[in-house]
Every structure is written in C-alpha cells, then in structure tokens.
C-alpha cells in the first residue's frame, strides 16, 4: 500500500468526519431549542435548571459538531486542491517540531524543570489514595456488614491496593517535607551535538547524601493506539553515567556538585511530533539515609545544528 502524501488529506476521511458531525449538530440544536421552548405549551418554565442545563449541553454538542464539520470540510478541500506549500521551512528555533521550553535563569545557568515536582507527586498520590481508599474501604464496610465472603475477598484485594497507594502517598509527602525538590541547572540551553555543558545540582535542606548518581539519557517515545487506549512506548538509545559520588552533603546555599556533560557528536537532535519524539534527559538519583530517596529526570534540548566537526 502506498503511504499517504506527507501533509496530504484524505477526501473520504473528511467526508466521513462531516457526516459524523451532523448528529452532534442536530442533537445539540434540538437540546438548545428544547431549552428555549417549554415542553407543555402555556405551562411556562418549571425552573431555571430546565433552561440552563439543556442549553449548556446543546451548546457543547453543537460546538463539537461544528468543529468536526469544519475540519472535515478543510480535509476535503485540501485533498482536492493539494496541500498548502511552503517555499522555505522555518529555522529550528521556530519549528514546531523542536520542543519549546520556558527558559528560567537560575544561580549558575538555566534551570531545568523536573519530570514531576515533589509537591505534584505528593498531591497527585494523596488524591489517588483518597479516592481509591474511600471507594474500596466504603465497599468493604458494606460487604463485611452483610457477611458476603466472596465480596470480602474481591473488595479486600482493592483495599490492599489502596493501602499500597496510601503508603506511596505517605512516602511522597515525607519526600516533599523532608527532602523537597532537587534543582538542576545547565550552563547552556540548548546545546549542539558534540558540545559540552556544565551541570550544577542543588538540593534544599541540610542533610548527608549517601550516594548521588547523574546519568545522561536519550529516550525515544512512540505513542500508538491499541484498541481504545493510547499507549506510549519508551526506549533508551543512549545511557551514560556522568558521575557517581558518595559522601556528599546537601546545603541550601551552594550546589552539591557540578560536572561536565558531553553530548555525543552523532547524537540525534530533540524532536517532538504528534506521536513520536526524541528527548534528552539528565537523570538524578539521590540515596539519602533516613529520608525518602530522590529519582527524577530533567529534560534539556539538543539542537539540529552541528558546530563541531563530525567524529563518526
């Protein structure tokens, strides 16, 4: 089968999308009409809720339907008349395929954002633990009260999973309170293949660090649909331990260590399209005695521009 034209559109797909949008527009329009016209002539409106709720639903359905209709119409027009052509592609810094970061200046360089902050982890896991345990332990109460033994076993498994989530949430909260966020700064952003950058690591609080490991990773990410789910597959194409050091100490005022990181000369640049991507990451692991350990990734960008000569 010949693959579709890059950037091209499918006229049949566009037509299907337009047809699919019609029930949305019809249903939404009917709901809006129902909100305006009382169901029993002369009866008037029962309440404002009878007007507002159908009107909101009608608006949402009509809006979604119109967006689909316009997208379908555009696809059909594009398929008939060819794609919109660009004489010259934008430079890498204006190209939507190059990841966009908000550059934040730190103490020694550009501050990188963590994959998930300690606070976000603590809040996310706490909410998950609250919902999961609320439902599963609530259900467990009723099956125990009614002495349904099979129900007790089934719901009990969910209750045990809830305890594990609760443990993870507690660990994350302790991590936030006792350790907090690690901060990684780099001397230049973005960086070219073959270039080096200096990495500075800061850690809040004041405590001993048994072991620190910093790794340079290049990760491919591919997103695909599997039935009704969307799955993201990940694969490391470059793994390199930059530094592994023991007997350090966190000190809020100063970087706990710094190191040089060399980007391989034959490296692929950072890239992000709708379903596929190549990401460059610094992975920081801290083993802290008596406190939760830290393991987080910090993304930085490698540009599609070679400044040094190729060494491949």
């Amino acid at each position: 089968m010949k693959p579709k034209r890059p950037g091209g559109a499918n006229a049949v797909g566009g037509g299907c999308l337009m047809a699919f949008s019609l029930p949305f527009i019809g249903f939404g329009g009917a709901a809006m009409a129902a909100s305006i016209v009382p169901s029993i002539p002369g009866a008037g409106y029962a309440s404002w809720a009878n007007v507002i709720i159908p009107a909101i639903f009608g608006l949402i359905f009509t809006g979604v339907g119109l967006v689909m209709f316009i997208a379908g119409l555009r696809a059909m027009r594009t398929a008939r008349g060819g794609v919109a052509l660009v004489a010259e592609a934008p430079p890498w810094d204006a190209n939507p395929l190059f990841p966009k970061f908000k550059q934040v200046r730190g103490r020694r360089g550009f501050r990188l954002s963590p994959g998930a902050s300690a606070l976000a982890k603590a809040i996310g896991l706490s909410i998950a633990a609250l919902i999961w345990n609320g439902i599963s332990w609530g259900a467990l109460f009723f099956v125990v009260r009614d002495r349904e033994f099979i129900g007790m076993i089934c719901v009990g498994i969910f209750g045990l999973i809830g305890l594990l989530i609760l443990y993870a949430a507690g660990h994350a909260i302790l991590g936030y309170i006792l350790v907090g966020d690690s901060r990684v700064e780099i001397s230049r952003d973005p960086v070219s293949p073959g270039e080096s950058l200096r990495v500075f690591i800061f850690q809040k609080g004041s405590f001993p660090i048994e072991k620190l490991t910093l790794r340079l990773l290049c990760q491919e990410e591919a997103r695909y649909r599997q039935g009704t789910d969307t799955v993201t597959a990940k694969n490391l194409v470059h793994e390199e331990t930059i530094v592994e050091r023991e007997g350090l100490r966190a000190d809020s005022g100063a970087p706990i260590m710094d190191a040089d990181v060399a980007i391989p000369a034959d490296a692929m640049h950072s890239f992000k399209s709708s379903n596929n991507g190549v990401r460059w990451l610094l992975e920081l692991s801290l083993v802290i005695p008596g406190r939760p350990d830290v393991k987080d990734t910090f993304e930085f960008r490698v540009i599609p521009e070679v400044k040094s000569s190729w060494r491949v």
Partner: peptide, 11 residues
C-alpha cells in the same frame, strides 16, 4: 512503533 506522523516540509 508509534502512529505515523508526516509533513510536507517544503514544496
């Protein structure tokens, strides 16, 4: 592995 992305970059 991922769903296909494609684009006509210049033309």
């Amino acid at each position: 592995r991922g769903d296909e992305d494609c684009q006509a970059a210049v033309g």
